[in-house]
Write a protein that binds this DNA or RNA. Structure first.
Lengths: 229, 229
DNA sequence: CGTTACTTTTAGCCATGGCAAAATTTTAAC
DNA sequence: GTTAAAATTTTGCCATGGCTAAAAGTAACG
């Protein structure tokens, strides 16, 4: 019942609705409370616009929301958000693996395609990729039934010096920064060693696949690593 | 100058604008004059909506239009229309060849994807397919610089009896009818012989790849064939 | 020609999803 | 507690792209 109801709702959702739900999910996953202004800033719209849309999402039964309070996804809303996120990350991986787009090109493309992808296409892409679990940035791909792997890894900025780590995830989205990181070999599965920290949150000296590199502290906080095993 | 102007215009076009331009092109290619009501019927909107949008396209410099007269694409409009048509047919072919969608599934999917496809993706798909000339229905794919192969073939309904023909194009778009035609083997490149006509525009008796089949006259008019060699 | 039938446009409405500016509520500081 | 600052919502506006109903233009026939 809840399922068919949600299916009915879903078929009437616009790309804007989906973008808001996805944004609420992503902001929520970052820990901080999801306020209308945080949402507005994330989406690049005015706070007034966010308030308006969140009220609509509440009426559609997709979020829990009371004036001046934080926004929470309910089960229906979370399912939609995870489905859009699944589309996004499947597309990113597909575009990268099968169509040879670079990892800095895939985000923007997926951002537009994710809203117009049928179930048939989702399944076809899943099959072509062999039911993958992570996209080219190391972000976990939600499963079709709405489960998602927990966050793994720690920021490279907090790594132990002289230990070998495996790069597991890059949270950076900006295309130019991704190009730059790629040029240093900082892709998922790269082997990274933190050689030396600089004081005052200065750059890190690291080794990427045995090549020495300097890395800005703020970028290092957006790169997640795990002990190399 | 005209080119960069058009590029600026293009970046502001909505999916609706693109759909109208594509529809004007397709209707125009069918020979009949493109009136606002024909356009409205083709797109499934009211005549008033079509009038409205055509006025906007005129203001954008994409069509030549005067009240109560037929609508003509100008060079800018035709270029946009052919680009959208190129996207559509490239996508149909890609979805069919690389992702194994059936030929009755690809039209609706391409209809949505065609409006959100970047140049980078267009080029990647073109490269993956080896710069193809026709989609799975035999429709010619416009080139990137806006040229399109002329209509080839004659309706199967007008074929010479007992002659071998090659099926070159299927104008049917409806998914159910396509499924049905596919079940008879009526794909592009099939060998077709018209065995016998029935009077009063009745069904045709045909042979498809040496299998006898009955075919409705109206469908036969939407199947184009060329002499087999 | 003039009248009628048909096509096309205009006028006025609706929903969506933006915005800025004004009003309100919450939070934080005293 | 009171009050000032900050965050949030309300109000009223805009553009887009639909719609229906009414008005106007075109065409065809007697």
């Amino acid at each position: 019942m809840a399922k068919s109801n949600a299916a009915l709702i879903k078929s009437r959702l616009s790309a804007a609705h989906e973008d808001y739900l996805k944004a609420i999910y992503i902001l929520g996953a970052q820990g901080a409370p999801v306020t209308n202004s945080a949402l507005a800033e994330f989406l690049g719209v005015s706070p007034a616009s966010a308030t308006n849309m969140v009220k609509k999402l509440d009426e559609l039964g997709l979020v829990e929301y009371e004036k001046y309070r934080e926004i929470l996804l309910n089960d229906s809303g979370r399912r939609v958000a995870l489905e859009v996120l699944r589309h996004h990350r499947l597309l990113e991986l597909y575009l990268h693996e099968q169509l040879n787009l670079t990892w800095d090109q895939v985000h923007d493309e997926a951002e537009r395609l994710e809203h117009v992808m049928s179930d048939v296409l989702e399944d076809a892409i899943t099959a072509a990729l062999g039911d993958p679990t992570h996209d080219p940035h190391g972000d976990p791909i939600p499963t079709k039934d709405g489960r998602i792997a927990p966050v793994e890894g720690m920021p490279l900025s907090q790594a132990e010096p002289r230990q070998a780590y495996r790069l597991v995830r890059v949270l950076v989205q900006d295309a130019k920064r991704l190009t730059y990181l790629g040029s240093m070999g900082l892709y998922p599965n790269a082997t990274v060693i933190l050689s030396k920290r600089s004081p005052f949150d200065g750059p890190l000296l690291i080794e990427v696949n045995d090549e020495p590199q300097a890395l800005d502290y703020r970028l290092a906080r957006q790169i997640l690593v795990a002990p190399a095993a």
